[in-house]
Simulated assay, not measured.
Amino acid sequence: MQHDQWEPQQGDGAGLTALVVAGRAGDARAQDELVAAFLPLVYNIVGRALSGHADVDDLVQDVMVRMLRGLPGLRDPASFRSWLVAIAMNETRRHQRPAPVDSGLQDAYDVPDPGGDFTDVTILRLGLSGERKEVARATRWMDDDYRELLALWWLEAAGELSRGEVAAALELTPEHTAVRVQRMKAQLETARVVVRALSAEPRCPVLAQVAATWDGRPSALWRKRLVRHTRDCAACGGLGAR
């Protein structure tokens, strides 16, 4: 079966469905075209969710391998995009959440963000400045689930995913997804306030006392402590209005 080189376009459901049907039937060229066409999308999803982690390449490869292996069992070819996004997110979650080791001592929320250092690398490599740098740093303070959602929401905002595809990746209804998006955006904004407060010159003296024992690694526990201060502090309270 012959195919012209195909690239995914919004609304091009018939062309994609035909390609998926051919790939599902074992057409090697159709499978190659699916990999080539959707590799950038998977890189976007995984790369954003992992904040540029060094394992992105390996994880993207795992996603594409799982896609090809699972393709013969895909019942509805029209759902291919949603199905692939779900595979990408499941593999990302599996990578981010190794089996927990219960020390009996450490608060579950007081675990440093493993991707924090890679945010600095991203800022350095891409030369981010201003608000983009602030948003990149703020993501270090977000819960893992919300960082995953943020990665998908950015792609939705860019027109690369539909809300239905985002919902399918999260295994939620579009209505539940809308609620989670709003909660995620609220957490992102509070994280941006934390970044602003910590980078303010001069730093609020009361904030300096609150953060005196902080080890410099973003965590959910410290985000809550610092946000609590900014809400009650006259000096830091205006940072959220920018």
Rank of each mutant, 00 (worst) to 15 (best):
Q106M: 08
Q61V: 05
L239N: 04
V181N: 06
Q106H: 03
L16P: 15
V121D: 13
A167F: 09
R217I: 03
P218H: 04
Y109F: 14
R75D: 14
P174M: 01
D12R: 01
A208G: 11
V60H: 05
E131K: 05
L172N: 00
R75M: 01
D215A: 05
A99S: 14
A108W: 10
T190W: 04
C233E: 02
L126T: 13
D27C: 06
R24L: 02
D27S: 11
A151F: 04
A167G: 09
Q209P: 00
P8F: 01
R217D: 14
H3C: 00
R183D: 12
W141L: 09
A220D: 06
C204V: 06
V46N: 00
G238T: 05
D27P: 11
A220L: 13
R147M: 12
A86G: 10
E165L: 09
Y43F: 06
M89S: 07
L150H: 09
A200T: 13
R223W: 04
T119P: 06
N90K: 08
W6L: 09
W154D: 08
Q106D: 10
E131Q: 07
Q9I: 09
R132N: 14
T119W: 11
V85Q: 02
L105C: 15
D76P: 13
Q5Y: 12
E189K: 13
P77H: 00
T177G: 03
N90D: 15
